[in-house]
Every structure is written in C-alpha cells, then in structure tokens.
Design a protein around this nucleic acid. Structure first.
Lengths: 80, 80, 80, 80
DNA sequence: GATGCGCTTTAAATGC
DNA sequence: GCATTTAAAGCGCATC
C-alpha cells in the first residue's frame, strides 16, 4: 500500500467506490427482476441470456466492421 | 423460445435488460476510473480491492449481528 | 494442501495437468498462426475475432433454443 | 472486412480457427477434470494451481539461465 | 442448482 | 520489434 500518510484521500476513494458499487448492485438486482418478470411470462431465462449475449456480440462485430470501413474510406481519401 | 407468440413483449424485455446492462457497464467504468485515480496517487489497487471487500464483509457481519439481536429482543418480548 | 502423504498421486496429477497445459498452449500458438496468416492475406484480426465470437454466441443460442424445443415437444408427447 | 472479395479464403480461415478453438476447449475441460479428480482425492485446487504455476516459472527461469550460460560459453569461445 | 463475483491467466494495444 | 500495461476470457467460489 502507499499513498500519503493517513489523510482523507483514502477515505474519499473508498467512499466513492463503495457508492458506485452499491449503484451497480442495485442495477444488477433490477436486471434480475426483469428476468424474473420474463420468466413469469413464460420465457426461458437461460435462452434469454444467450440471446442478449449474442446480440451484444453482433453489435460489437458490426461496430468493428463499420470502424474498419471508415478506415478504408479514409485511406482512400473518401472521408475527411 | 417460450412466451406468447411473436408480440412486443420479448422486444420490450430485451430492450430493458440491454439498457440496464449499459448503465451497469458505465458504472463499472466509473469504478475503474476511480481505481486508476487512486493508483495515480500512489495507492495499490490490489490492496485497495481487498480493503473494500473486507469492509463489505464487515458490514454484512454487522447486519447479521443486528438482525440476530433483533430476533433475541423479539423473543424476549422487548420488541413488537 | 491435503492428499495422502508423499506418494505418487500428486506427481501423477501434476504431470498430467502439465502435459495437457502444454498441448493447450500449442493449440493457442496454432491459432495465433492462423490469425497471422489471415493478416498476411489482408484480413483484419480484430474484426475476425469478433466474427468468430459472434458465431460462437449464435451457435450457443441456437443450441439452447433447439434444446428448449425438444423439451416442449417431449412434454407434449411428440417425442420419446 | 478486408481480404479478397467474397471467395473461400475467409470461410477456410474461420473453419480452421473454430476447429482449433474446439480442441483447445476440449483440453481445458480435460484439465478441469483432472483438477476435479484431485479435489476428490483431498487436494486443494487453489494450492495445486499455485504449485503448477511455480513449477512453470521455475522451468522458465532455468531455461533463462541455461540460455545465459550458453551465451557466456559462446562468448568465451567454449562453444561453436 | 443456478447466478453473480473475483481472481488468475491470457491476448492486444501501445510506447520506447 | 520488444517489453510493459491494460483489456478480456475462463475458472472456481460463494451465495441465494
């Protein structure tokens, strides 16, 4: 460990992280709630998770491709 | 997939989950930022994480204890 | 640590794991080689990785769905 | 995406990588199996992993040393 | 038994 | 081009 002698920096850092962690946990619970609601409507949570993950990957791949095309077009003098 | 035939429920569910996931990711990045800031101030991130985890456990243990005390007091007719 | 006193069990376990790890590393290098080859042919490795990941997710989601349908059909007496 | 127009190169590359990835995953499962077996015999997985990692580092260090000695001997005209 | 979390390990980006 | 630093994946663990 390092940092200056026992001043308030550490406490401030810890407080901020803990606050953000709480918000993050709350969102996690919200997500769990939506899944539970979906389950109550007859959806299969496991499949639903896979679908969400697949969409995320698709989105990432698409963005990569668009970024690449932009690079190509830039190299070809078709953009800025 | 389960659920009712192809109505809007599924899309609504997926949209909500994806939105919450994005917010959760954003918070994760915020936390990473705070750790980076702390590192820049000379703190050791790994140790910092241990500290946060320990505090979390402490808090949980304390809540356990309080809950237990409440139970005792209730059994003793000192509460509700 | 646990396990029986210093007999040959531990050595056998360690040897097997190390052997498998070597094979795994070798495969990792093979994969790296294929990516390098692809790069030499003008492909973008980053995009390629995303595509592979997306296909993997798609495949997983599809298998989940098929598994679910099988369950439904089984429940409806349409299979075994 | 780059590479030649939509010919079979891309498909071949993707197929090869996916095949290698499957083999790599299979090896990972094998390793997991050995760890599980060791756990069933009373060994502590976490410690076992440390041992393996330590041996790996030892081996690397020894190879470094041998390589260094070879360099010295070469410089001293004791080799090639 | 399933889900979220953290650690460990591995790959990628970047700066020298 | 290599070495360091940072992002990502896999894995085991703990929790509910």
């Amino acid at each position: 460990m390092a940092g200056p002698g026992h001043n308030g920096h550490l406490k401030s850092i810890v407080d901020r992280i803990e606050k953000l962690n709480e918000e993050k946990s709350a969102l996690g619970e919200d997500i769990t709630g939506v899944y539970a609601e979906a389950k109550g409507q007859g959806f299969d949570i496991k499949v639903l998770r896979k679908v969400i993950a697949a969409r995320k990957m698709d989105k990432a791949a698409r963005q990569e491709m668009e970024s690449l095309m932009e690079t190509y077009m830039h190299n070809l003098g078709m953009l800025g």
